[in-house]
């Protein structure tokens, strides 16, 4: 939010806004998804842009909503209108606002960046966060061997198939460790929770943060899953 305001946007969070409905959508519950989507479409009526700090939510709004209303032209048109106004945060900062609008922050450390699946493959978020991070003073980025491979979160997948999910996140954690980074960044909350949980269980010292925290100069707050300081 700080990032957006710094860039000159007026930011509002509609009080009726909740989840985008992806858990229902990916569980095959189309009726519930449509009900939630209608609610979200109402909530964001009238805004110039809808910005999500999570690739999977952004992807849901901009790629999947219109297909939910194939039998309802009026709703489909509204869903398409919303889709056109929906953005993932990093892509909004760079592709819509222009990266110069983001004030330079400072973060002392070596980071590695995980490409979240929806952000990367549905929304084409790849270069944008790297360009923004490039402007952060004190930060150097060490890439993983396969930053674009799924971390094993997958929404309900990680509790329905915990063994497979664990194998995937273990591999991710090894890839992270091999970079020597002290901070793991990503742009999707599900991935962040999953990887943070694994790293902590393994006793890793790697701190896990949303990429926006670093860009907003909020790197002094406790990282995800880290105890409060003092």
């Amino acid at each position: 939010m700080k990032l957006l305001e710094q860039a000159g946007c007026t930011v509002e969070v509609p009080p009726v806004q909740v989840c985008c409905g992806q858990p229902a959508y990916n569980s095959g519950d189309r009726a519930t998804t449509r009900a939630i989507a209608s609610q979200v479409i109402d909530a964001f009526e009238g805004y110039d842009a809808v910005v999500a700090p999570s690739g999977s939510c952004g992807g849901m709004l901009s790629h999947h909503y219109p297909g939910l209303f194939d039998d309802d032209p009026a709703m489909k048109a509204r869903a398409e209108n919303l889709a056109g106004r929906s953005h993932e945060l990093m892509s909004f900062l760079v592709d819509v606002l222009g990266e110069k609008k983001v004030a330079a922050a400072r973060y002392d450390g070596v980071a590695t960046y995980h490409d979240s699946c929806s952000g990367l493959r549905e929304l084409g978020v790849k270069e944008q966060p790297r360009r923004l991070l490039d402007s952060v003073q004190g930060l150097s980025l060490h890439e993983m061997k396969t930053p674009e491979v799924c971390c094993g979160f997958g929404g309900t997948f990680c509790v329905k198939y915990p063994e497979i999910s664990n194998a995937m996140v273990s591999e991710k954690s090894a890839d992270i460790a091999a970079t020597g980074a002290d901070t793991l960044l990503a742009g999707d909350l599900g991935c962040l929770m999953n990887m943070a949980g694994k790293l902590q269980r393994e006793g890793s010292a790697v701190r896990v943060r949303h990429v926006a925290e670093v860009l907003a100069g909020m790197g002094d707050l406790p990282a995800i899953g880290e105890p409060e300081r003092g």
Binding site: C158, V159, K160, P162, E163, S165, N166, V169, M193, N194, A196, G197, K198, Q200, R201, V208, L221, P222, I224, G225, E228
Partner: peptide
């Protein structure tokens, strides 16, 4: 299913 293999991060303050 979650906590068998990983911790669940507490909410940030």
């Amino acid at each position: 299913g979650w906590t068998r293999f990983r911790d669940f991060p507490a909410p940030q303050p």
